[in-house]
Design a protein around this nucleic acid. Structure first.
Lengths: 326, 326
DNA sequence: TTGAAAGCGCTAACAA
DNA sequence: TTGTTAGCGCTTTCAA
């Protein structure tokens, strides 16, 4: 592989001039540009990015820290991140943290040794400490790590309000809210939205905590639904949980949506594959990912951020797990 | 951040000795080891991996090229790759190729400029050419790019035979095989398995081609099932397609498994979330990923490979879309 | 507008 | 067993 010196030699100029040329920095005469351009073509020269990084102390690597890429929310997010990164010539490193602080710390350290340009963090592990005094840019998704860290999130509260209101409109009077883990920002916000929607209405409510995990949700729902008769609506804080509820209902012979209506939250592809299709409060996951990545890249390239907190609207998608008026 | 020279100074030895120490190469006296170890602790020294790479022309970066991480087969695979990579101190770069040769080429070039150590390729794009004369290790998943490239795959043919046989055992007499794209290795193998299973049996069969895509599968299935009465079994070449068939059956009022039995292929989590649960030929996706990653790392570290082609067994998981004897 | 040369932090050959 | 030193390929300052 040709290096910058070969190009310099081939074109009869110095390496400094070639460097200026490829970085479009400083003065390079028209003639020089021509010769160099030709030499680069001829030699099929590609700059050695490692050498450049050593010199500039910068790479075009982005660390994407997710709890677990197998959780169906994250593939779409990762896809958006990667798409945007590609546009700006960045490369995405995948990190599964399993919500463990040690793992996060390990990734951060290893990647810093590689001069990673910045991190996108989507974990719940609220250990702000190891991000705070990091000297490289960090942005967060859907959870406020620290006031100093820019964040993109969905309007969780409004979404939950919307979803719950839909249940009420469709006639539910006895609603269970399967809330996500306490202390987890988005889960708390969604509970707030739920409470706001039922407030002052003549609705019987139950609130049960439930992880964003299919089997566990199914089990919890099965137990609850068989012990409590008369429940006619479930607002689940995630689509995976909602899928668990739907499966539980099926196995108990409860007919959805006639006897029980269900609304999920997230808008992952799974919802459309179920029968009946899952009514859900859809986040624009791709947009979340795209926005957060652009934000990070701005930070890296020291472009002023207009906003440090962006909220992305959510949208109610009505499918078959709730009754439709038409 | 402290560098190797600081450590050398602090411990009163030369950088060469420190380098030998951290790489565990060459001679370092007991005493030197002690002082250096202490200095490293004290200064919280971490080797600069970029500098090391520039010198050695090697990194611990692995490029994972998938068609699309949003396709539910790949998150589990990516997870396995990342887990194993982490064990060996490698870092995984995520690349979505969309099956486009240009994108693949772009990733390969960019990552080579970063001294990537090797690639795991899982695309169908059979453009062997740009891998063949690559001077870095490549391994492939589930598709033979080229005889020189080691491969890990599932026993697709046997799996399809197994799945189809199950359908027959459960009484199906009029079976549709929704085969994957022609020319795609695994899809062809699965068709072979299907054909082998029905061969010589008194079974009416239809073979239709269908991409590994939910909506399209649903549409194709809906059309086919409404035009052809009497079909009592479907063998789908992927779980996503099977999910589409199931959804189509529901919307047509066809009762599964009483009137129609369905078997999928892949063993992704989705199958368990459907109602009824999807009977499927499960690949051990995690194992595929783990094996292929270990293979690549061996290649990178120049450890002899025992086998250049590994087949991982598949397993029939019987759930609710086929009748059960008990 | 250009070029010489000093670094970036590490490895590895070679000499001691 | 240790140290000196020349790279790895690029950027960037400074002088010309």
């Amino acid at each position: 592989m040709a290096n910058i010196r070969d190009v310099a030699k081939e074109s009869g100029v110095s390496v400094a001039t070639v460097s200026r040329f490829i970085n479009q920095k400083g003065y390079v005469s028209k003639e020089a540009k021509e010769v160099i351009g030709r030499a680069i073509k001829e030699l099929d020269y590609k700059p050695n990015l490692v050498a450049r990084s050593l010199s500039t102390k910068q790479t075009k690597l982005i660390g994407l820290i997710v709890p677990d890429i197998m959780n169906p929310f994250f593939p779409e997010l990762a896809r958006a991140v990667e798409d945007v990164a590609l546009t700006y010539d960045y490369t995405v490193v995948l990190c599964n943290s399993d919500e463990k602080a040690e793992k996060e710390i390990h990734y951060i350290e290893t990647l810093r040794q590689k001069y990673v340009a910045g991190f996108i963090v989507t974990t719940n592990q609220l250990q702000a400490s190891h991000y705070q005094n990091l000297d490289i840019p960090v942005v967060a998704l859907d959870r406020t790590i620290d006031a100093s860290i820019p964040t993109v999130s969905s309007n969780n509260k409004e979404g939950a309000r919307l979803g719950t209101a839909h249940l009420i409109e469709q006639g539910c009077q006895h609603i269970v809210c399967m809330r996500g883990p306490t202390g987890l920002g988005p889960a708390d916000d969604r509970l707030d939205g739920f409470l706001e929607a039922v407030e002052g209405k003549e609705i019987v409510t139950h609130i049960i905590e439930c992880p964003f995990h299919f089997e566990q949700s199914e089990e919890i729902a099965r137990k609850f639904l068989s012990e409590h008769k008369g429940i006619d609506g479930v607002f689940a804080s995630s689509d995976v949980s909602a899928a668990g509820v739907l499966k539980a209902a099926h196995s108990l012979g409860i007919i959805v949506p006639d006897e029980l209506q269900i609304v999920g939250f997230d808008g992952i592809a799974l919802g459309g594959m179920l029968s009946p299709g899952l009514t859900t409060v859809a986040q624009d996951i791709y947009k979340l990912g795209a926005l957060v990545t652009r934000m990070l890249i701005k930070l890296i390239e020291e472009i002023e951020l207009e906003e440090k907190e962006i909220q992305v609207p959510v949208k109610l998608i009505i499918r078959g797990t709730t009754r439709s008026e038409q």
